[in-house]
Every structure is written in structure tokens, then in C-alpha cells.
Simulated scan of single mutants.
Amino acid sequence: MPVDGVSQTSEPDGAARPATARLSVVLPTFNERDNLPVLIDRLDTVLAGIAWEAIVVDDNSPDGTAEAARAIAARDPRVRVIRRVGRRGLSGACIEGMLASSADYVAVMDADLQHDETLLPKMLAALSNGAADLAVASRHVEGGDVGSGLSSVRASGSGLANRLARLLLGVTLSDPMSGFFMIRRSEVERLAPGLSSQGFKILLDIVATARGSLRIVELPFVFRERLHGQSKLDTLVALDFLGLLLSKFVGDVVSVRFLMFMMVGASGVIVHMAALFALIELEGMSFQLAQTAATFVAMTTNFWLNNRLTYRDRRLRGLAALRGLLTFYLVCGFGVIANVGVASLVYQEDAGRILIGLAGAAGAVMGAVWNYAASSVLTWRKA
């Protein structure tokens, strides 16, 4: 009987279980009910003669994707379903699916039909001959193309992200933003402790974490148009990507989530100053009143951004979001006290500018750490 959050395999009465899979195809899904049956049929065709399985990892889709996957699994024992409740995110889903596999090789691809499934046998051949540990479907090698699957804006953004990854992390892949790849499962087991469950760029995380230890081959593919549904990527993913880049750049000393929280906080400074000047210059408010109002404006926008991005896997909605906003105000209020308190301890009368700067920085760091730790527990606590 299916159990939420646990890998499940369904098979009809009397049906023989398939041979141990040589290849697991991990399909992270969110609202892909209409695309999933089409993709499974295509996998059945292109992987004929290969012992394969599909592991559908669904983030509790409201459109019934998990139910559709179970219906397929009832007819085809090669399909397994993991329904994740209370946790979200493409990278986390991919990691969970890959670690649920017992096959020698694991492929990750989108379930939206934009990835060319006919490339899977070529990937498997590239790995099974012993020449590589990771096969990547690239849109940027000869023969590959972004096609019509990406808008011009998203295509430009993807190109910029690729350049940043190569510049900051030394990643030599032509397409580190690709979400279509195959890897030896033994390498997944080795690298998994260093991977982040947040974000959308699991391939970049794998390559950056491996630090040059993987033998990689790139195969060209053309990115196709989505058949059903809408893309789950939005403009806020850019901040998520920058958080991953910075985390890997500093050697994973701090988490991706903390770095994103800090980036949101930095944006709050800009919002605060803009609101402050607008209220004084345009509304004629006194400085004290404008400063107070600007503080609440900045805290509100910080809450919204953190709820949308930093804690998107714990996103609050409805009344829960209102309660979360109130607790966030409370947390930030104590954060100000922590900031001033630590700065006062460091500051000394008649101190030079350097010590004044250090005092201010120490207070800011303490306030930021408090806000992050307290909001994780109080505002966006795990269900």
C-alpha cells in the first residue's frame, strides 16, 4: 500500500517483477500530470532491450501528478513513485530520487518533454564503456541548440549563468545549467553529502562538489518546446542560482539558504533607503516617522522574498503567511537589539574609524545570524 514520502512500487496481481534495473531515470515532477504518461511511453520505446526503471519524485502536485504516476505504476512495475509532502525543490527531489536507485547508472531529466529521451541510450553507452562518469546533454556544443524551448530572455540568462559558473567555480562544462544528465550511481553516493537540496541546478552542484574528479562527456541535444503545462522557473531563481554559486565559491562554509537570506537582506537595505527618501521628499514625513515606516516596508519585502525564494520549500500561504509575517517582524525586532548590543560591546569611546567600523560590522553580523536562525525556527519552521 502506498506510503507518502517512501519509495513505492506497484504491480498487477500475478505480474512478474522486472529484472534488476541497470538504469534508473529520475523524473522530478510538479504539476506534470498530462506530460508524464507521454514520457513513460517514450521511455518504453527508446529504452527497449535495456533493464530500466523510472522513479517519479513528485512534490505533492495539486494537479494529481502522483495519482497519475501510481496509475501508471499499477500497470508497469518499472515505475516507482515518491510523493514528497512538506518539502519542495528540484535539487532535493533529484537527490532523493537518485539515492532511491539501486541501478548502476542514474539519469535525471525533466518530465515536461523538453528533454530528448532518445539521447538516453547514447548516454548509457558513453558511461558503460568506462570512458566517463558523467554524461551531460548540452545545448551549447556542436549539434546542440536551445531551440524554441527557451524564450530569448531565458536563453540570455542561461548564457550568463554558464559564464558565471565557469568564471567563479572553474566549471569547464559548456552547459552547466543543463538539467539532463546521466551519472554512475556510485558517484552519486560519494558526492551526496556535499550536495544542496535547495535550488534548481543540481548538475552544477554535482560538478562543483566533485572538484574535477569526474570524467565528463557532453552530448548535443536540442531543447524542445513544452507540450503541456507551464514552466516552474521564475525570475527569483536567479537569486537562488547566485546563492549556490557563492556557497560553492567559499567551499560550502555557509549554506545556500543562509547566503540567499543575506542577499535578500541586502536588497532590503535598498528598499529601506528608497522608501525613506520617498516618504520624506514626497510625503513630507518627519525623519523619525519615515524611518519607522521604511523599516516596516523593508521587513515586509524581505519576508515576501524569503518566503518566495529562501524558504520556497516551506512557503507560507493564507493565514499562515500572515502569522509568519508577524513573527518575522518580531524576530527582526530582536535582531535590531542583538545588532546594537553586540556593536556596543565592541565599540569604545574615542575609538578610531576602524574600530567603529568593526563594531558596526560585528553588530550587523550578529543581527543577521539571529534573524536567520530565529526565523528558521519561528517563521518558517519545518512542518
Rank of each mutant, 00 (worst) to 15 (best):
R215E: 04
I216F: 12
V217G: 09
V217T: 14
E218Y: 06
E218V: 07
L219Q: 12
L219G: 01
L219V: 05
P220W: 00
F221E: 06
F221A: 10
R224F: 10
R224I: 11
R224P: 12
R224M: 07
R224E: 03
E225R: 14
E225Q: 11
E225Y: 07
L227F: 02
L227M: 08
L227H: 07
G229V: 02
L233P: 01
D234W: 13
D234S: 14
T235R: 15
L236N: 10
V237A: 09
V237Y: 06
A238K: 00
A238M: 08
L242A: 08
L245V: 10
L246I: 15
S247G: 07
S247D: 04
F249H: 13
G251S: 04
D252H: 05
V253S: 10
V253Q: 09
V254A: 15
V254R: 12
V254G: 00
S255W: 06
S255E: 05
V256Q: 15
R257C: 06
R257H: 11
L259D: 03
F261A: 14
M262V: 15
G265N: 09
A266W: 08
A266L: 12
S267F: 13
V269K: 03
I270N: 04
I270F: 10
I270V: 14
H272D: 14
H272L: 04
M273W: 13
A274T: 04
A274F: 05
A275I: 03
L276A: 09
F277Q: 12
A278D: 02
L279Q: 05
L279R: 01
I280R: 12
I280A: 02
E281D: 11
L282N: 00
L282T: 00
L282Q: 02
E283S: 04
M285I: 05
S286G: 15
F287W: 13
F287M: 02
Q288N: 05
L289A: 13
L289Y: 13
A290N: 03
Q291A: 13
Q291V: 08
Q291L: 11
F296W: 12
A298H: 03
M299T: 08
T300R: 04
N302S: 15
W304T: 09
W304F: 09
N306Y: 00
N306P: 01
N307K: 03
T310Y: 03
Y311W: 12
R312H: 08
L316M: 06
L316T: 05
L316E: 11
